[in-house]
């Protein structure tokens, strides 16, 4: 067994708020509109940075092939 070598996806990095990603810019305004969320302009850079960070993690988890019978752990018992 071995752990993955990388701490996080190569982009957008680990910076959290304030990070950036030249590879792709999430369509934050559209995503916010879908859930009825209005993001103040002053907050947008921070939300974009955090959204990009989460998408990087989502890519990491999403790229892992899981068997079809692996169910979500909604009712989780350790």
């Amino acid at each position: 067994m071995s752990s993955a070598a990388r701490l996080s996806p190569p982009s957008p990095g680990l910076s959290g708020a304030g990070g950036h990603d030249d590879r792709k810019v999430p369509p934050v305004a559209d995503m916010a509109r879908i859930i009825g969320l209005s993001i103040p302009a002053a907050c947008m850079p921070d939300v974009v940075a955090n959204t990009a960070l989460l998408h990087g993690y989502a890519d990491l988890v999403g790229s892992f092939a899981l068997p079809d019978d692996c169910e979500p752990a909604y009712e989780y018992v350790p």
């Binding site: 989502a58 988890v61 752990a73």
Partner: peptide
């Protein structure tokens, strides 16, 4: 805010993982 916008596919995949 960023978390609230995460797609369901991402959340479900994380729970399956």
């Amino acid at each position: 805010m960023a978390g609230a916008m995460l797609p369901a596919a991402t959340f479900v995949q994380a729970q399956r993982f």
